[in-house]
Amino acid sequence: MTVADLPRAGTLFRRTFRGRRGAASADFAEYLHDLLFTNPLYDPATGGVVHARSDGRIDSACFSVPMRFKVGERPIVAQLMSAFMSDADGAAGAGEITLRFRPRRVDLCFTDSASPVTKAHFIAASATIIPIQGLEWRRAFQPAAMIARRLERFAPGTSGLLATLAMPVDRLLRTLHRRFEAPAATGLEDFEMSRAEFVSLAAGFVERYRVRPDWTAEELEWLLAMADGNVTLGPLRILGVREADGRVIGCVVHYGGPGRIARVLNVFADIGKETAVLRRMFRHFDERGFVGAVGGVRPSLIEGLAEQRALTFRHRAFTCLSTRHPEIVEAAARNDIYIGGLAGEGWSRLMTDFR
């Protein structure tokens, strides 16, 4: 994919995922350019792919964002695959794109937002599926307001009315059912973590994994800057968690604010401190007036999530990967791989914006 392909690829994206025809907006065109061509790791070899017909129409495409990863101590450049798309008559082109990502051809390409159709293409390419990381948890603090917030997507401009109607319902529900109140997290405190501190700590929180992001300051700063643009989810914040002695044991990267649903990208924690970080996170959200919270499931978080009441799980998307390295497949099978959030697509405006 080249810069010259962006207008046609953007049109295909809008047609496929938004049901809209015609040229993309200037904002969307600028975002696609920034997403696909300003990454500090950008290289045409790990960039997006398009399939064009003889008349110049792009009938199939797949975006790609390069990310540094480590397999043990060996660095590789992985490819986050995004927006695999094709027209109804683009099956041949989609098939050709799929062949480019067969395991024998790539160090690691992956997606944590695959639809059933995209999953089918990955399976056709002999890829690996990571089932548990396709799950999402949802925690309600003010259940009526949380439902109202979700309804806004289908009824724009009704947020004020819906919030007003939800308030007395939530007061009654929280009085009758203490399950909506997040339990206290004693011996812990939270704080607003600076970007500089987060950048210095993030890589350390994922060192336990055999296959993990190999974040540099430059790459993380680019990711955070891109994530900042996803304003439909609210402001991007980093919540630090520390023990009484001041030792930082984890942090949470999330969107949202009071009266909104927190969208949690990542929960980072020292080994054995995952439940403590989750307790403080949920308590913080409840105390600050968030109506609910949602985030991705990781095996290390299951115990802490399971102790929360008013929390449910649902399937969100498929997490798929393709790699020539057997050790990555083996690591994925035992959940010894870190994918998701900033090491995934949850921060991208393609997931939530440009409706």
Rank of each mutant, 00 (worst) to 15 (best):
R105N: 15
W347H: 14
M85A: 12
L35K: 02
S115P: 07
A293L: 03
R14Q: 14
F101V: 06
G259M: 04
A125T: 04
R212N: 07
G19K: 05
T275L: 09
R237E: 15
F63V: 09
I129M: 12
T164P: 00
K70D: 11
R283C: 05
L35R: 04
L321W: 04
A276M: 01
P75W: 00
S64Y: 02
P235D: 12
R298F: 15
R195V: 13
L6E: 09
E207H: 11
A332V: 03
A185M: 06
H254C: 11
T275W: 02
G234L: 09
P168I: 10
I58H: 08
A276Y: 06
A317F: 07
R139C: 11
A166W: 06
A196L: 05
R280N: 08
E307Q: 13
S200E: 15
A293N: 03
I58A: 06
F63Q: 04
A262H: 07
G56S: 01
A88V: 10
R263G: 08
D87G: 12
I261M: 10
A155Y: 12
D89M: 04
V50I: 14
S82Q: 15
F69A: 03
P326L: 03
E243F: 00
G22C: 06
V106G: 05
R74K: 14
A155H: 10
V50T: 15
V241S: 04
D336H: 06
R105I: 00
M193I: 01
F122W: 15
M1P: 09
K273R: 15
R20A: 13
Y338N: 06
G90K: 06
G304P: 07
V329L: 01
P44K: 10
I130F: 03
F180L: 03
G22S: 05
G346F: 00
P258M: 06
V211K: 04
M1S: 13
L311M: 14
A182E: 08
